[in-house]
Amino acid sequence: MRTAPHVRTALHGAGRLAYLLALPAILLVLWWVLTAQSTSFYFPPLRTILSAFGKTWFSDRLMDDVLPSVLRLAAGYVGAVVLGVAIGVLIGSNRRIRLLAEPVLEFLRAVPPPVLIPVLMLFTGIGDTMKITVIVAGSLWPVLLNTAEGVRAIDDVLADTARSYGLTGAARLRRLVLPSASPQIVTGMRQALSISIILMVISEMFASSSGLGYTIVQFQRGFAVPEMWSGILLLGLLGFLLSLLFGRFEARVLRWHRGWRQAQKGES
């Protein structure tokens, strides 16, 4: 949520939390009130959904379905970030490789990742390997392309400075290349996070015996409508939580960048 700086400073701790939760709370109340008398089979009262939520998820499913999903998500996401940064640095720092790889990258990026699922199933079966591979294959691109762009855009005066002080190889990567590209890398990581969640769910819907996506589809097929809605709610909450965590990570890693940008705006 973006707010103006003076608003941001005015909102501390509890006040800020209240600000953050006000709209969700209003929407939940609306949902509760509007569906309270509902007799529709497909749109049950929120009360019913919430009671189904407790029964459905605070049970064996937590370990059997939620945890495997989260682990796959984590493995796929970390894999995508590591691979994306590694290849992105390589492509960003070498003009020849960049020219060579660009058309291929544009093509690969344009392939919708879910389409890989049937193909990957042939090679890797329907186990965790397939699901993690799908997540990596889909969320790799924003990290890779943003990293490459960030690395390419390293200031040449800064690069000359680093060189003149003997910063080469691993030290250059750690002290110059990665921090300098970190704003773009983080942007790519944020995009990759939401893609990862989507692909986690989709890969589990295709062919699976566990996971959130699998469970939600099972509920839908069994006409367990309140349980299905509760699964969607859980996915939403998971995404929201991860986004909050990511926001904290971003604020920490890019603290310098915010100040630096403000200083630059002030000068020009």
Binding site: D155, V157, L158, D160, T161, R163, S164, Y165, G166, R175, L176, P179, S180, S182, W256, H257, W260, Q264, E267
Partner: peptide, 20 residues
């Protein structure tokens, strides 16, 4: 290559210090 016993001060101070 850049010798070890030499240091350079560039004109663009804003771009020669590591902002992070």
């Amino acid at each position: 290559g850049p010798p070890e016993n030499m240091a350079v001060v560039f004109q663009e101070y804003g771009r020669s210090l590591f902002p992070w």
